[in-house]
Design a protein around this nucleic acid. Sequence first.
DNA 1: TGTATAATTCAATTTGTATTGAACTAATAA
DNA 2: TTATTAGTTCAATACAAATTGAATTATACA
Lengths: 115, 115
Amino acid sequence: MESYEFVKDLFQVLGNPTRLKIFDILMTGVHCNCEIADMTGLAINLISHHLKVLQEADLIQSVRSEKDARWIYYSVNEETLRSIQTETEKFFDNNRIINREPVCPPCNKKTNQKE
Amino acid sequence: MESYEFVKDLFQVLGNPTRLKIFDILMTGVHCNCEIADMTGLAINLISHHLKVLQEADLIQSVRSEKDARWIYYSVNEETLRSIQTETEKFFDNNRIINREPVCPPCNKKTNQKE
DNA sequence: TGTATAATTCAATTTGTATTGAACTAATAA
DNA sequence: TTATTAGTTCAATACAAATTGAATTATACA
């Protein structure tokens, strides 16, 4: 099950509440650095740091504003969003759960002796 | 958006690769502590610790074996699994993304001056 | 009873990473 | 050409949580 690798990277990045909050804000549409600062009360350099981590994980993207190139607009990567949907669905699919009896190497000997 | 809270707790627990690996094993069916140890090569007490965290988050459950009550069987909580499916779907729903222009409090003044 | 096994709990240590503060870069505007 | 604003980068610190090892609990078996 290779969806484990995808989900592992995803959860590691979004497992941080601050980063998830920022991503949650971007899920509602394009925002700039200072908007996020205003909404969260976080230090601007801390936001920069987390945005970088999100961007390196391909979860978001950035463009400089046409109005004023000092401003940078951030938005979620919709292609990645589709992958998230399909991969998490695969990973948490309840059809993966099969009916079985635990057979651990050491315990197994004991069990067999019993029979 | 209250799915944020659900997803936050979920990702915080499964954001740890070791814990996610254990959960991934349980997604394939019931396993006992020593089976997980055999499959992962992790210390038995470390597995115990992570299983406890997973259980406290209602992600898994445990029962003592009827064959030998020293053995404890672990399995994923299928009710929680359904919640995970619906809440993550909500959270990552691309319909949440609305078309907007960033309007940060400080930048906004500048923008208005320009017009 | 006393010993072996399965698993947990506790305390100590290590490690990874979030956060903070200061310095730096890029673009605009007086 | 200097000052201002927006944002990033870097180094240092703080903190939370993972890991390790030793002690403890619970059950089984001889």
